[in-house]
Design a protein around this nucleic acid. Sequence first.
RNA 1: GGCCCCAUCGUCUAGAGGCCUAGGACCCAGGAUUUUCAGUCCUGUUACCGGGGUUCGAAUCCCCGUGGGGUCACCA
Length: 520
Amino acid sequence: MSTVRTRFAPSPTGYMHIGGMRTALFSWLWARKHGGQFILRIDDTDQQRNREEALQPILRAFKWLGLTWDEGPEIGGPHAPYFQAQRSDKYRAAAAKLLAEGKAYKDFETPEQTKADREAAEKEKRQYVSSRSSLALSDAERADLEAKGQPYVVRLLVPRGQKVAIHDHIRGDVEWDCNLMPDPVIQRGDGSALYNFASVVDDIDLRITDVIRSEEHLTNTSIQMLVFQALGAKAPEFAHIPYVAAPATTKKLSKREIGKYRTNPQFKKLFEMGDAVLPKLGVAVSEALNPVMVEFYEQMGFLPEAVLNALARLGWSLDDKTENMSLAFVTEQFTLDRVVKGPAGLDPDKLLAYQEYWMSQRSVEEKVVLCLPYLERAGMIPAPASTEQRAFVAKLVQSLGPRLKLLSDILSYEEYFVADDQLIYDEKGFQKRVRDDAGAVPLLKDLAVFLKTTPDFGTAALDATIHAWMESRGMPMGQLVHALRLALTGKTAGPGLFDCLELLGHERSMARIERAVARV
RNA sequence: GGCCCCAUCGUCUAGAGGCCUAGGACCCAGGAUUUUCAGUCCUGUUACCGGGGUUCGAAUCCCCGUGGGGUCACCA
């Protein structure tokens, strides 16, 4: 049995589609599960733009998620080049071979004529098939036309009177009637190859054994099978997995619908999170950076394992209960027969749930390392953070605990990074908990006096002393908590109160209490 | 329109003839814990697209509808 070789063949479009990523993941999993190779091939046949730049975000997404490739851009391989634009001679040679063997023919019909034929067939409600008028030409006539520079395309001669069939790993047996297929163009007038042809030539050349791709290619497979046959090559195994749909729909997730997705009830949340966070990092939700793109999730501070987990569970399941799975585990367990047949909508809520789980698996130290760049990019701490700052962030992350869901959530705790006189208050909360609460101000004043003589500002010590202090006054903690939190952080919610005090320390806590009392 | 694919809670899914008065997770709603929030722990609501078969028995097999989707290029 030969080694399993799968491939993913993106076009360098400047971003990585999350649905494409899911397809790539399944392909990667299949190769890795079998100890085979995963190849990245770039379909850049008609790219005018800067390839390098347009390719980077795609490679970046693979790297971020840890989906390594064995052959392809940056690393090359035994079947280089891996860019279709650099392989045109191979396609031309293959086309010439088919031409010589009579399995393809030069079609001198003008595009206008072909189009008219197609439309006529449509009007008469009959299946359009190629006229093959050029096939009736004599060799002399053909030579004459070529000599005169009459442009032509090369079409594959579809063998009439038979069927093409595949045994798809997910769809089962699927077949098409060749009598209903027009002869597909495999080479353009300018000599360049078309996708359905180039793709097959490459799959043969790269020794691809398993083609795992999105189901929108299912129909293409009929043509490709004929090309494999014409080229005398063994066709690979096919697995057409369902496409990823927009949240709560069965429609293919598309970059063109981004405007609509903003109002999609499930998707909305993600857009709003992006709007709130991304500007702090100096970027913004855009055509290239939005919840359809992998990079969005990276920028927002999702963990790779969360995105991977969500993607793996989109259209695939292990059993009736296993939800949280690492990439290594999924690699071990992945099988194509457990891929669901229907399209699956991306579920932002579920993704968030996986994110919470995987965040809970990370140590405080790990979270700190991952959060620091966010704070630095947002300018909340100076670029190379000092040892003291790192220690402070560690303490904050520790106190935040499960409140930190996305790495970028750290950005919403500015109150721990601003100067005391710059603190912004939740005015509604301040009104309710401080101004309108008759007991609040006197209590805060008394507390300030008491804290002056409280040297130990550790959470545990504060917990004990303040509880005792309140008890001595015959008051429940509830009386103090809200007003004090508002005074210290300007907010109505946050980490435990004693954590807030310890984080800010003696001096800053005192200053903030005084400022709060003064602004009433 | 032709061809092809698909169809279980709101969502992601389990289910390969009896284990199904359909299971899990997310979401949602209650409750408990708690100084707030978050978390955690309980509890709860909600689904087999419709109609015919086959069978002692169908979510599961077959057929027909219906619905959804993909694809029909000198795009990939």
